[in-house]
Amino acid sequence: MSTKFKKKKKGTPGISTASLPDIVFMLLFFFMVTTVMRETDLKIKAPKLPQADQVKKLEKKSLVSYIYVGKSKDGKVKGDLIQLNDKISDVSQIQSFIFAERAKHSEAEIPLLTTSIKADMNANVGTITDIKQELREINALKVNYSTRKGSAIDNMKN
C-alpha cells in the first residue's frame, strides 16, 4: 500500500493524448456539417465573372439566392442559359424560384433578400435585363452583380 502511494507522487504523470484525435475529428465533422455547400452543381459552363473594383461583400449568405447565367457546357445551345438551383431554367421560372426562396425565410427577412447574378462576361445584357424585369415584377429589388476584384477597365480588353 505504501509503495503504491509513493510511486504516484514521484515522476510527472504524462497527459494522455489518446483522446485528442477524437476531439479534432469531432471539430472536423462539426465544420463539415455546418458549412453549407452553396456551390451548386453547375449545369452550364462555369461563368467567367467580370472584374470590378466598386464591390461590396455579400454578408449574410443565407439571405442570398443565386442566378447563374452562362453558355451551355457542350456549346450546342447558342445564346445564354439561366440556371436556378440545380437545373437550367427559363426566364419565366425566376418568379417561382424567388417565391420558393422567400418561403424559406421569415416575413421580416424578405426585404433583405438579395439576388446575386453570377453572369458570364460574354453574356448579353438582354438576358440580364429580362432577369431584372422578372425580379422587378415581384418586388425583389436588391440585386448584386457578382464580380471578381480587379480593374473594370480590363473587362474591355477581351
Binding site: 470590378a52 466598386q54 464591390v55 461590396k56 461583400k57 455579400l58 449568405k61 442570398v64 438579395t114 446575386s116 447574378i117 431584372k132 425580379l135 422587378r136 415584377e137 418586388n139 425583389a140 429589388l141 436588391k142 440585386v143 448584386n144 452583380y145 457578382s146 464580380t147 471578381r148 476584384k149
Partner: peptide, 13 residues
C-alpha cells in the same frame, strides 16, 4: 469572402 459584387437596387415597378 469570395462573393463580392456591385450592389444595386432595382427601381420599383
Amino acid at each position: 469572402d469570395i462573393d463580392t459584387g456591385i450592389s444595386r437596387k432595382l427601381p420599383e415597378k
